[in-house]
């Protein structure tokens, strides 16, 4: 049970740590008030508990596809707010509050609700709660250590002349989450994704530790389908393209003012 808890912690909660690494680098030069941080934390906790407690009811909605549709909507909201935030990183945080709130709360709800279901299941097995808590402590340690190193890397990239690598990584993170939409929709037969394009599992298996980390960072899938790949590419290109347009517009505006 300890190993299961650690694996689930990495699978479900590592992406949240990765998101916070990106956001803290985006807004590292701005002061975020304690009140706003508390509001985001409260929003994250409430949205997670709301999804967790209503998951059983939601799963029965729309002929049993309610849960998938809910996750699709949340992932879409997360993607849109994530793209928006990355475009407006230089503007004061006060102007990004709503989108930042949506971005964090939706993502925590998506990733956290599944972990709470696991927690509730183990709670019913006497004696295993202690092992789950121990697994969570180990998982927290791994995620915290990874985040500290990853945040340092992102911060250095952002301040260096290789800022474009930071943009690529952020876009890949958003695209990885957005591409999950195709899996969810094909799981309930709303779209047809076709056969897998290739199989990279001989290099990195999805179930391995590297697979989990790559999935959290870039949405890695060892055997993606055509629909998933197309969605990934579109979702990857959108933030980069918009960022480039914004930069060109801003520099043109600066030249005009000068």
């Amino acid at each position: 049970m300890i190993i299961t808890s650690v694996i689930l912690f990495l699978k479900d909660l590592l992406p949240i740590f990765v998101l916070f690494c990106y956001l803290s680098v985006f807004f590292e030069k701005q002061k975020i008030t304690l009140a706003f941080m508390s509001l985001i934390a409260l929003g994250g906790i409430l949205s997670t508990f709301a999804l967790f407690t209503m998951a059983e009811v939601i799963s029965d909605l729309f002929e049993g596809v309610g849960l998938e549709l809910t996750f699709v909507i949340l992932l879409f909201l997360f993607y849109v707010s994530g793209v928006y935030i990355s475009l407006r990183e230089t503007s004061p945080i006060a102007r990004n509050k709503v989108m930042l709130f949506i971005c964090i709360t939706t993502f925590i709800a998506i990733e956290g609700a599944g972990f709470l279901v696991f927690f509730s299941v183990t709670e019913q097995h006497t004696g295993s709660l202690q092992n789950v808590l121990l697994g969570c402590i180990v998982g927290l340690g791994i995620c915290s250590s990874f985040s500290a190193l990853f945040r340092f890397l992102l911060s250095e990239l952002k301040q260096s002349r290789y800022e474009w690598v930071f943009t690529l990584l952020w876009s890949a993170f958003l695209a990885g989450q957005a591409s999950k939409i195709t899996s969810l929709l094909s799981q309930v037969d709303i779209i047809s994704t076709g056969a897998p394009l290739f199989d990279a599992s001989r290099w990195v298996e999805d179930s391995s530790e590297y697979g989990h980390i790559l999935n959290a960072l870039f949405g890695y899938e060892s055997s993606p389908t055509l629909a998933m790949s197309i969605t990934y590419v579109i979702a990857f290109v959108i933030p980069i393209t918009i960022r480039s347009i914004v930069k060109i517009k801003l520099s043109a505006r600066e030249v005009a003012h000068a």
Binding site: V117, F118, Q124, Q187, V188
Partner: peptide, 29 residues
Amino acid sequence: TAEEFDSFDLNRERVIFAGKSATIYVGPL
């Protein structure tokens, strides 16, 4: 108790609550 049907190979993941059923589609494979 609830269980989560999970398959990395099939790229499927679905929570099935206690005493309930869930439907998933797989393939073409």
